[in-house]
Amino acid sequence: MDFNQLDMENRDPNGINDHLKTGFDDVLAETDGTHSLDCIWKVAYCFFHGCKAFWYNLCTLLCGFFIACFWGIEFAAIAFGHVWCITPCLRVGMIHCNLCQKTLGTWVNCCFAPCCEVFGLIFSNIKIEKR
């Protein structure tokens, strides 16, 4: 493993979890005329960010390794299934469908193409005149 490739600053470079960007102002807001004391508002701000960081870190400490292991196994199983089962089955299906397409195409060209050509020549000589 090359840990030098990890971006320790931007841990969501593809914006997968942009919907989780929630700050104090997104959760708590006082309208005009209903303001708490300034010191309460500042302490609430500190508690919000402190508790959010503490509990997130505690949950990741207790569960992060196990969940990362689970998802690693899950995506390994998906990759295994695709490489060893699904893709070969799709390839077999494509081979069979290609054979059916060629067979049906040959049959249509041999049986229906001459009939269609004859009918085309017959109906191409029809002329409609308006009176």
Rank of each mutant, 00 (worst) to 15 (best):
C89T: 11
P114R: 05
D25M: 00
V27S: 00
P114M: 13
R91Y: 13
F48Y: 15
S124W: 01
M94T: 00
T60R: 03
L20D: 05
G50F: 05
N109S: 15
N57T: 11
C97W: 00
K42Y: 15
G120M: 07
N57K: 08
Y45M: 03
T60Y: 07
L99Q: 09
C116H: 07
L121R: 14
L121W: 12
G50N: 05
F75Y: 15
Y56S: 14
P114W: 05
F75H: 12
T60F: 03
L104M: 09
F80W: 11
F65Q: 14
T103Q: 04
C69W: 04
C63S: 13
G64L: 01
G81D: 06
A113D: 11
D12T: 11
I67Q: 09
R91H: 14
N109K: 14
R131Q: 10
W107S: 04
C51M: 15
G93D: 00
A44H: 12
N14T: 10
D25I: 00
K102D: 06
Q101H: 11
C59V: 10
P88I: 00
K21D: 12
I95L: 10
K127P: 02
W107F: 14
C100D: 10
L61K: 10
F112W: 09
L62E: 08
L6E: 06
G81S: 06
F3E: 13
E117G: 15
I128M: 09
W41I: 15
L99D: 01
T87M: 02
F70C: 07
T106E: 01
V108M: 09
N125I: 08
H96T: 01
W71L: 04
E9A: 13
W71H: 02
H35R: 12
K42V: 09
P114T: 14
G33L: 01
T103H: 03
W41M: 13
T60D: 09
A77H: 01
E9P: 01
I86L: 13
R131C: 02
C111R: 04
T106C: 05
D38Y: 06
D18N: 14
I16R: 01
L99P: 00
L90F: 10
K42W: 11
F112K: 03
Y45G: 02
E74V: 06
L90Q: 12
C85V: 15
F70W: 11
V43S: 05
E30D: 05
M94K: 08
I122Y: 03
G93V: 03
L104N: 08
C69A: 11
G64Q: 08
F54G: 03
C116V: 02
N14P: 01
H35Q: 14
A79P: 01
A44G: 12
T106L: 02
F70M: 11
G72H: 06
A76S: 06
A29M: 07
F119N: 10
A29P: 01
D2I: 09
H96G: 04
D38R: 11
W84R: 05
M1T: 13
G50E: 06
C85W: 07
F70Q: 08
